[in-house]
């Protein structure tokens, strides 16, 4: 098959570009250690969350911020149309420490995004989204539900407040 010299050059350059892209992503995973949201959070029946029977859930706890020996755990329920915690009171976490978020939904699909950052996950009924974040600086981050969840979707927001370690008070273990 006859392929023009310029076409061959272009073909080769395209392949180099593609391999380079894949390389940057692999580097992002193993270098800076950017992890994907995956199946590590486990599953939970949406009805269990809806009924508030958290003691029956293997992969979820009563919503709140927990200070454990391994770090800080934050359990969030995203529901029509608020984050619990997050909306009526902010999620308070310490700076400089690894925070594990666990987010699920008892009703429809929601989103959980700290605006302008890469803290971003889908919240799917039946699944617990688990991911870790370390906030280097104190300050406030707005939480946006970024997936349409019903006609009050645009009112669904919340806040994470990052405080100094000395000011942090976690819930019971």
């Amino acid at each position: 098959m006859h392929v023009h010299r310029f076409e061959r050059l272009w073909f080769g350059a395209s392949l180099v570009l593609i391999v380079a892209f894949i390389g940057t992503i692999i580097y992002g995973a193993v270098g800076p250690g950017i992890a994907m949201v995956d199946d590590s959070g486990g599953t939970v029946e949406p009805s269990v969350i809806a009924d508030g029977e958290y003691e029956q859930a293997d992969n979820f706890r009563e919503p709140g911020v927990y200070d454990t020996e391994d770090g800080v755990d934050v359990y969030v329920v995203a529901r029509q149309y608020f984050f619990q915690p997050g909306t009526s009171e902010p999620i308070r976490v310490p700076a400089g420490e690894e925070i594990s978020f666990h987010v699920t939904s008892p009703d429809v699909t929601h989103g959980f995004n700290l605006a302008g950052t890469n803290v971003n996950t889908m919240v799917i009924p039946g699944q617990v989204a688990e991911f870790s974040v370390t906030f280097e600086e104190t300050g406030e981050h707005g939480i946006v539900c970024h997936e349409y969840c019903g006609d009050g979707h645009h009112t669904m927001e919340g806040q994470v407040v990052v405080v100094e370690q000395s000011e942090f008070e976690g819930g019971e273990n």
Partner: peptide, 17 residues
């Protein structure tokens, strides 16, 4: 800047972009 898609009013009280 973090402005979400699929929303009628991307104007919030607790979130700034």
């Amino acid at each position: 800047a973090g402005i979400p898609r699929r929303t009628a009013e991307p104007q919030y009280d607790m979130v700034s972009f």
